[in-house]
Design a protein around this nucleic acid. Sequence first.
DNA 1: ATTTGGTTGAGACATCTTTCACAAAGATTG
DNA 2: CAATCTTTGTGAAAGATGTCTCAACCAAAT
Lengths: 205, 205
Amino acid sequence: MSHNIPDIVIGRLPIYLRALTRLMNEGHEVTSSHELGRRLGISSAQIRKDLSHFGGFGKQGTGYQITYLIDQLRQVLKVNREWEVALVGAGDLGSALAHYRGFSDRGFRIACIFDNSPQKVGKQISTFTVQPLNELSNTVEEHNIRIAMIAVPAEKAQEVADLLIQAGVRAILNYAPMNLNVPPDVRVQYIDPVVQLQRMTFYLT
Amino acid sequence: MSHNIPDIVIGRLPIYLRALTRLMNEGHEVTSSHELGRRLGISSAQIRKDLSHFGGFGKQGTGYQITYLIDQLRQVLKVNREWEVALVGAGDLGSALAHYRGFSDRGFRIACIFDNSPQKVGKQISTFTVQPLNELSNTVEEHNIRIAMIAVPAEKAQEVADLLIQAGVRAILNYAPMNLNVPPDVRVQYIDPVVQLQRMTFYLT
DNA sequence: ATTTGGTTGAGACATCTTTCACAAAGATTG
DNA sequence: CAATCTTTGTGAAAGATGTCTCAACCAAAT
């Protein structure tokens, strides 16, 4: 176990975690790689092999104890705690993210919101007061924040990213439709709905 | 060229397209696989190989004519036209999507918005009037809509998906945090910010 | 005209990822 | 208890993806 785990395996674990949580809420207590695979459209062998990177979580003949497996996966992914997240951008998207109730029970909490426009600064969004960008460094450093979400226009995204990284952020979820240039110890994930739509039109007749 | 193109190759084309558009807007007229690769953090060989699936777009010694390559990629991805998209869910997220200005110049246009809550139905969002769910089938069929975005709570997502597919939709962008069960001729892309955050925490120290 | 430097496209090769197949072990049935 | 069924974890095989390398080609400079 635990040599270097392929990226692609880590990428599937949150999906497993989400499906397992759903199974649990539906009242199941145990499941199998086959059942999970059927639900996710993934082969059972792949699920078993993925999990086997981290140790034997299952029991032959029975399958996996759901609550136990959830616990283990949360531990592997380090979401058995609450991460504070900085949000930059208080437009439509930023506001929607600030109001989203789905972060807290999955390991994250928005801790502060930044925006540069004078109309937005000082505004109350959800339980937060929008702070100006020049307070970003201090706030992020004080709270020791390592994760940020960028929801600003594409033109501003790189500059915001640089600021965040300078302040200690090491994981960025970028909603701006552009690639970010970051040092190798910083991880970036991208959300661009248009890219995902364009991945499907190719297959439409 | 054009035998069966791997999924993963198609997945990168929208990224290339986005980067090329940016290069064009910055005033460049030609580019090379090296320059593009440097910007995207992808090897130049990979870019050349990806593009070569569709024919020789480049010129040795010079590189790629940007406007020409953009044209070709838009043609391959079938976004050299405007696709009408149905949006289901008029909450915070649905509203943010309805207001987003970034769809139109990249091949998509939201054509209608649906929601089931009585507080939302009839409401004006951007230039649309929110329609009740029971009008979904008719509207989607009339407009011959093939693409939809789901922005409803997880509990309702599968039922909405079934309705959409029944009405003729063949590509779904699902914002609900759950896996959808769909027939093999329907494509689904998922956007769950928490999943993407959880993909990064593993690597945080 | 020739040389130099840069670039593509593609076959060969290397690496990564998934699937197969089965021993080992727990559960269940008669 | 014995036979049967189910399921995991894993090494081996197969398949998919990415990188290397280089011939062919183009542009620019001398």
